[in-house]
Amino acid sequence: MPRVSVEVDGVRYDDDVEPRLLLAHYLRDRLGKVGTPIGCDTSNCGACTVLVDGLSVKSCSVLAVQADGHEITTVEGLGDGQNLHPMQRAFHEEHALQCGYCTPGMIMAALDLLRENADPSDEEIRDGLEGNLCRCTGYQNIVRAVRRAANDMRQAESTEQREEARS
Score class of each variant (00 low, 15 high):
C136R: 13
S61R: 05
P120R: 03
R115L: 10
H85L: 05
E130K: 06
L129E: 05
G105R: 03
E163H: 04
I107W: 10
A150I: 05
C45A: 04
R30M: 10
R162P: 04
S158V: 02
P37D: 09
L51W: 12
E124V: 11
C60Y: 04
P37V: 12
L133D: 01
M108V: 06
V34C: 01
H95W: 12
L133I: 15
A165G: 01
P19I: 06
L22K: 03
V6D: 00
E7L: 14
C102F: 12
V50R: 00
R3K: 01
G77W: 09
V4C: 02
G128F: 08
Q140M: 09
M87R: 08
R162T: 11
D127F: 07
T73P: 09
G54L: 14
K58M: 14
I107N: 02
C45F: 08
Q155E: 14
S5A: 04
G128Q: 06
V17C: 00
C136P: 12
P19H: 05
V50M: 01
G10L: 06
I38S: 05
E157I: 03
E124H: 07
M1C: 10
G54N: 14
G131T: 14
V75M: 10
V52D: 06
Y101M: 14
V11L: 05
S56T: 12
C134T: 09
